[in-house]
Design a protein around this nucleic acid. Structure first.
Ligand SMILES: [Zn+2]
Length: 229
DNA sequence: CGAGTTTGACCAGCGC
DNA sequence: GCGCTGGTCAAACTCG
């Protein structure tokens, strides 16, 4: 492969170092079991703004390379690095909508389970989803009566693990809050309540069965249940 | 011809 | 002070 002599020297002067505060360092457990997800560094003080870091573990193996619209939003890939811990490369995505949406996404496949990818979402979208980007006619007709749902409270925030057993596979969604607030206690109590769990599961199941795009419905349900901390 | 993806280089933070 | 690592940028390339 003839290496082109084109010097890809990037002018340092032009480097836009307008990074206000991007103190983001998370350690992710390689295990596919998302029971305990450690998101956000322990030293994350209030110096930086509260950046919502949502970690979602999804099961899909054929769609990873330049996979756009995996969750309904349009993403633009802007980098790919191979981390030392994980042999599989990590892909860096950004919302297709320019700075308007500073939402970023990191997708990395599990160390050994190529069928499980861990997507880390940063930020929140402030625009209507373009939808119809790639909806699939997957008719979700399997509404099993038992939907396993486990909720665990972490020191940094509540972690809701919803495992939906579908004909094609399972989906695990883990939502974690970066900071613990006084109100968190109430949330914990509510979440810990079995009634809340059942209600949440039922709501989610209903929404999922109601909409064809289960991912969209799930995201909407979670956002509706946990709008803000 | 354009948008979007690919891929190496650059850079800053952290550790030693 | 140097080196490593993760994260980002931007030129080149590819697909439509
Ligand atoms: Zn967005």
């Amino acid at each position: 492969s003839p290496t082109p002599p084109a010097s890809k020297k990037r002018s340092r002067e032009s480097v836009d170092t307008s990074h206000s505060c991007d103190a983001n360092s998370n350690r992710n457990a390689r295990t596919a079991a998302p029971e305990h997800v450690d998101v956000d560094s322990p030293l994350s003080n209030a110096t930086c703004r509260r950046i919502k870091v949502k970690k979602v573990c999804t099961r899909i193996d054929p769609s990873d390379t330049s996979l756009v619209v995996k969750d309904g939003y349009q993403w633009r890939k802007y980098g790919q690095k191979v981390t030392r811990d994980n042999p599989s490369p990590r892909a860096y995505f950004r919302c297709a909508f320019a700075p308007s949406c500073p939402v970023k996404k990191k997708v990395q496949r599990s160390a050994e389970d190529s069928s499980v990818v861990e997507a880390t979402y940063e930020g929140e979208h402030n625009h209507q989803r373009p939808t119809r980007a790639g909806e699939r006619p997957s008719c979700a007709a399997g509404s099993g009566g038992s939907v396993p749902c486990s909720i665990s409270i972490n020191s940094s925030g509540p972690t809701i693990t919803l495992d939906l057993t579908k004909d094609a596979g399972g989906l695990q969604v883990v939502e974690a809050a970066g900071e613990a607030q006084p109100d968190l206690k109430k949330v914990c109590r509510e979440v810990a309540s079995p009634e809340f769990q059942r209600a949440l599961v039922e709501q989610m199941a209903r929404e999922l069965t109601g909409d064809r795009n289960f991912t969209d419905a799930l995201a909407a349900a979670i956002l509706r249940k946990l709008p803000d901390y």
